[in-house]
Design a protein around this nucleic acid. Structure first.
Lengths: 348, 348
DNA sequence: CGTCATCTTGGAACCGGTTCCATTTTACCA
DNA sequence: TGGTAAAATGGAACCGGTTCCAAGATGACG
């Protein structure tokens, strides 16, 4: 083999000539059309094999007018949960004929850019948008450009989506703590307004408050702490909670990442989990099981997996419905939650 | 606007007709060729604007015989450091005309598959391989298929690469601890044989041992613990280290992820960091600064950034050299390291 | 004012597949 | 064995750009 030679491109015409058939026949063989006799098919396949022919994906895409690419738009790289969803996406794409194109969003401005660009530049056959909420104008652009879109973990009335019921999840988490006998339950979550309008934290809080109300427990504003979505912010917030005169006996964190911070704060202060403080998270990211964190399991991998399947499906059947799949949430009881030390401790 | 209408495709021929010029002229305008008179250019641009024409990327790719896509192959989703490198990659790609196609590797078998496929199927113009070591056969396949490849954090004599000097990094880490007065220094890292033959942990250990040797400190096998690359494995290993009759006064962890486990173990045991135990990590992932972890800063984002730039560059100039860029490592002193409590404590 | 170099421009050929229609071949049946 | 429907096949047209060459327009200069 020579050095630096450029690969000899074998085309469908070379195959046709070599096999003494027309290009149409070769194309039919390539696409498993039934309109080829078995002998001809085998002969063509032999020639393809001999010449080591691979159809040019570029030519296929142009003539089929499909990019064979799927775009995924998300704020990756900050929340481990999104990365886990992406794993589910990748698993499906890898087994398909499509390529996975990743658009990382770091700012609201970039989000708007990418939303616009994907509608205009015809580079993807379909889009999966994770945890980002498009505006009506974005949706209209995609629609008129003919780009199918599926949402994961977010919502728009006109688009199919894969969601979980965060309100219910928050309710379940609180219910678990209530059943254990806790009455002083605090919440650590995201601010009401995040840069990307993430709503899951608020929804989870809403569910929790509903559960408290049903148990006749009044809401205590001082038990409600919000801050950036990371472990260290949650740690600091927890320090505040635990410094209260009447500290909570249980803390519900809006995500596992934040629950890690809560547990870290407890350790800082020598407060034992779960004996002195129960902690429950949300998401069930990988590390949660290592740390024996009780949490609400959310099927992250599956959300990506199902989302892409829904997208692929909505790409070849043009149905006008907007399916909505709700994935189940499960309480996973590990060892970060337990009944409170005393029925109702008066003071620390 | 109608519902369900398909987008009207405006082609270069429509523009040419509307502007009373030839398609060649429109193409020249699109590609900023200087061979168009200013008046004609402006007129064509106006028409393009009026018709809202966007060139079909599919057609461009076929006629230019470029996929305008770049593939990135890595084991994502397990090590935060790889995700950070990907951020650097994405930042460059987003500003270019290329698309970023992600290939996630989960098993050695899938790695071999993807290595083969990317050489055969002509779907990318270039490849960036992160932390995975290709075999000679893989490299030869890519070469004969004409696919340029750049390696990041790994090595092959025939391929350009972006690396750091892990041996030197390990040396620097140990040197820091030695200068503080430590003499009992342990190491927590990856096993010698990992599924993907990651070598960084071993290299860092080699550097550390060299530093110890230079200081006339004998290597103590019981101070060498290896296990899976995650926080909890490191935590367990550290428990073993700290249970020794003569425990180390400092621990060098082969990565920040593992250093987190070391610190967690110390907290489990009520051992203060840095008063009773110094901990130094490697990588400087985002969380390291929150936790005030002393570590060796490795430019992760930059490695992706520079890697892609090197790739783009080697894609348009066909140089036969194989450049090798070595990025600098920096010791970042935070507050997880300090002089040992006593010059040489006899026992715990 | 003719000549020639330079600048612009039009458009055919091409990239490498798919698709559809016309034609040939085969198969079946009376 | 002739006739006809069905199956198999060939290949032109097409997808929508880029590129290159020939040709026309412009302008400088002797």
């Amino acid at each position: 083999m020579f050095n630096g030679e450029h690969p000899v491109p074998v085309t469908i015409y070379d195959v046709a000539k070599q096999a003494n058939v027309g290009v149409g026949t070769v194309s039919r063989v390539l696409n498993n059309s039934p309109r080829v006799s078995p002998e001809t098919r085998q002969h063509v396949l032999d020639v393809i094999d001999t010449l080591n022919f691979r159809p040019s994906p570029l030519a296929q895409r142009l003539s089929r007018r499909k990019t064979l690419s799927i775009g995924v738009i998300a704020v990756f790289f900050t929340r481990p949960s999104v990365v886990e969803r992406l794993r589910g996406v990748e698993a499906v794409i890898a087994a398909s004929e499509y390529d996975l194109i990743v658009y990382n969003i770091e700012t609201p401005a970039k989000r708007d850019d990418i939303f616009c660009a994907t509608a205009a530049n015809r580079r993807v056959d379909g889009l999966l948008v994770i945890s980002l909420t498009p505006a009506d104008a974005d949706v209209e652009r995609w629609r008129s450009a003919g780009v199918p879109v599926v949402l994961v973990d977010t919502h728009h009335p006109a688009l199919p989506r894969i969601v979980v019921n965060d309100v219910l999840g928050g309710y379940q988490a609180a219910q678990h703590l209530l059943e254990l006998g806790h009455r002083q339950i605090a919440f650590v979550g995201d601010p009401i307004h995040t840069a990307f309008n993430f709503t899951s934290s608020q929804d989870r809080l809403a569910g929790m408050r509903q559960a408290l109300t049903e148990h006749g427990i009044a809401w205590r504003p001082e038990y409600h702490q919000t801050g950036e979505h990371d472990q260290q912010a949650a740690r600091a917030l927890t320090h505040q909670l635990l410094a209260l005169d009447d500290p909570p006996t249980a803390i519900f964190a809006a995500s596992d990442t934040q629950a890690l911070g809560v547990m870290e704060a407890a350790r800082d202060l020598g407060i034992r989990v779960p004996e002195d403080l129960s902690v429950i998270g949300f998401d069930d990211i990988e590390i949660a099981s290592y740390l024996n964190l009780t949490t609400i399991h959310q099927p992250l991998f599956e959300s990506g997996y199902r989302g892409i399947n829904l997208l692929l499906q909505s790409m070849d059947v043009i149905d006008s419905e907007t399916p909505r799949e709700e994935l189940a949430l499960d309480l996973v009881v590990r060892s970060s939650t337990a009944p409170p030390a005393h029925a109702s401790p008066a003071l620390v």
